[in-house]
Simulated assay, not measured.
Amino acid sequence: MDSGLNFIDLILKASFLVQLVMLTLVALSVISWAIIIQRRKTLGHALSSAKKFESRFWSGVDLSKLYSEISARGNKSEGLEALFTSGFKEFARHKKNNVHSAGMVTEGAHRAMRVALSREIEKLETSLSFLATIGSISPYIGLFGTVWGIMTAFIALGEVKQATLQMVAPGIAEALIATAMGLFAAIPAVIAYNRFANKVEKIESHYANFMEEFSNILHRQAITQEVKSNVSA
């Protein structure tokens, strides 16, 4: 004869509010795992794309040719390509308008790349705040279910003349399941958020370093143009 408590039976026999709490936690867990899988794929793609572009950028290719290749693809550039195209486009615009001040040209390109950097990091951080929210509130939602379940169990216990542990055990057990489910939803979300936030920070640093290096290249080209303009004048 099995005297143990069946996990499924405890959930099915739980009060409506506790079941609602459990259902909410299951939904939050599913959402968090969907975000984790999607963010992992996105961040991995961002890092691999950055390495691929940098390999092409530092191969000695002409920057005008590289810009034309990216623009010819038609699809919107992202990651380091977005920083490069925004900076070089601004550089080319100043060049077309015969702006010969190296400082003005470089500052304009750098400002355009800063805007692009902000947009790209915002894309990478999509849904991370929601993941952090799930990690923060899930234990409290589970605790609410536990408190309610235990309170209901003791109220029912007070209505009988002879109370036994066997009578109150199922109610307490079903209540504690809510806490366990809250932790089950929260722990992966917190771990994933910390890991992804750290990865986004590294990618941002990677982008910022490229932005500064590219700005130096554009600055050198702007100085060369400025010198040629002064000589010809």
Rank of each mutant, 00 (worst) to 15 (best):
M22G: 08
K52L: 09
V105F: 01
A92E: 05
N75E: 13
A46N: 03
E81S: 03
A50L: 09
S15W: 06
G74Y: 07
S59N: 12
V115A: 07
M113D: 03
L28D: 00
F57E: 06
S32F: 05
R39I: 12
Q38L: 10
H94I: 00
S32E: 06
E78V: 11
V115P: 04
S77G: 14
G103Q: 13
E107F: 07
L83Y: 01
T85L: 14
S55P: 10
I70C: 02
T85G: 07
G108C: 13
S101F: 05
S71F: 11
T126N: 08
E78D: 11
L117S: 00
F53D: 08
Y67E: 01
L66I: 03
R39Y: 09
A109F: 03
A112C: 06
F16K: 06
L20E: 00
L28A: 05
A72K: 06
R119K: 12
G108I: 06
L47G: 07
K95V: 03
V115Q: 05
L17E: 15
Q19N: 10
S127I: 15
L17I: 13
R56T: 15
E69A: 01
I36F: 11
S29W: 02
L83I: 06
Y67Q: 05
L25Y: 01
Q38T: 10
H45I: 14
V26A: 07
M104D: 12
V61P: 02
T24D: 00
K95W: 01
L47A: 13
K96T: 10
H45F: 14
E122S: 15
K95T: 06
G103I: 11
G60V: 13
A92Q: 03
L23K: 02
I35N: 00
S68E: 07
V21M: 06
E78T: 11
N75R: 14
S127T: 15
A34S: 15
Q19M: 11
K51P: 08
M104K: 14
W33V: 10
V99P: 04
A92P: 00
V21D: 02
L17Q: 15
L43Y: 14
K96A: 15
S101D: 13
S118F: 10
L25M: 02
E54R: 05
R111K: 09
K52M: 10
A34G: 14
G103N: 11
G103R: 08
M113G: 04
N75I: 14
A46H: 01
G60A: 12
H100C: 15
S64R: 00
K89L: 15
R114F: 12
K89N: 12
T42W: 06
V18I: 05
E120D: 10
A112K: 04
E81K: 04
A34W: 14
V99G: 02
M104T: 14
S118N: 12
A50Y: 07
